[in-house]
Design a binder for these strands. Sequence first.
DNA 1: TATAATAATGACCAGGTGGTCATATTATGA
DNA 2: TCATAATATGACCACCTGGTCATTATTATA
Lengths: 208, 208
Amino acid sequence: MISSTNKFEQLPKEKQARIVDASVVEFSERNYETASMNKVVERAGIAKGSLFNYFKTKSSLYHYIYHLAIGEVKAYLRKVRDETVDLPFEKRLTKIVDSGVQFITDHPRLARIYFRLIYSADSPNRQKIVTELQVLSNDYLGEIIQDAMDRNELDPNLDKGQAVFFLDSILNRFLKDYHEAKSHGDVDQFNRDEWVKGITIFFTKGLK
Amino acid sequence: MISSTNKFEQLPKEKQARIVDASVVEFSERNYETASMNKVVERAGIAKGSLFNYFKTKSSLYHYIYHLAIGEVKAYLRKVRDETVDLPFEKRLTKIVDSGVQFITDHPRLARIYFRLIYSADSPNRQKIVTELQVLSNDYLGEIIQDAMDRNELDPNLDKGQAVFFLDSILNRFLKDYHEAKSHGDVDQFNRDEWVKGITIFFTKGLK
DNA sequence: TATAATAATGACCAGGTGGTCATATTATGA
DNA sequence: TCATAATATGACCACCTGGTCATTATTATA
């Protein structure tokens, strides 16, 4: 079966990039329903008919773009997971938070799309996507926590599901607030190192 | 100065209620930008011109409605705070979570408006509102935590700001997930008592 | 170069939006 | 009862939306 992005992927890379960039800007600045295809074509410098030739619907363009964002997030997570397998839980957690901060710095717009997806309720297929991300997060943090339990760095009798939930809540909230502060220019209200330290201490002392 | 809701408040209570109900439904089901004034008047059974006579703009109607939601939330929080001043931190926390769950059960639509406000980025004056709520939460949870520190139930050397942040993150996330699960009908995935217990244990053992 | 195939274009469509305002209805008071 | 003031009404406005498609421009083939 031919995907709706097939025609798009035949395009010259430069044109693809223009369209992706324009879409990322639009979907990061407005939510799904208010994001405008007219604005996308305007910014990308192509005709409206062309865009609807590459992507049959607004929904399919959005699908393509948020997959891109999630893919990028996943890459960061995988990288930091693999680079820290041998570190103790505390150090590992620090690196994970750092990596999140780094992602936000490197890809603020993708981060915004990601947070929109998680926290707002208006994207198409929202429930399916959120469930997917939940599973991803569970697997990812679950692995980190399991490792720590195996090494007796965390109480081996922990309710792993709950521990993952707590960790996920705090990490996501911290990164979201950090992202928001950063995009409003007052990033200094977060002394990053202090917070990273605080989070790790909270969890190590807290669950031990 | 005469507020834009002045004319509205002169109306017969019954008519006010119809308009408030219709607005609450609309703003709970759609986000600010996609909520429709046409739908509101239709549901309330009044003419469009009338609604714009009572509220000069969509934004001022929204303002009125979310203040209502926040007011209700505050009332619940105040109540549980005052009723639990003498209880130990653990019991107190349990009651707070319970009260949140109760609010969601009693006012699911107001809860939705509240969560929309916190988690989505598209309401007018969003930044101001969110800052206000942040302050509210800081005062509220800050007081609870300070009490516990004073009684040596929590480590008196805690960074209170961080402790509040952690607590706020987890409480909000739990209630949001609970609310979502409930409105999708699969509330049973949350064994409420178990979670309430888990959260309190996590914090008491964690911060002590 | 002539022809066929492919890709790009933007005027156009139906349907929605927040908001307005001349007109119709109702309430008030003498 | 009649005149005046207050309120309710919905047709209407300009503007925007996602999406379409006949026409035009470009490219590939011969």
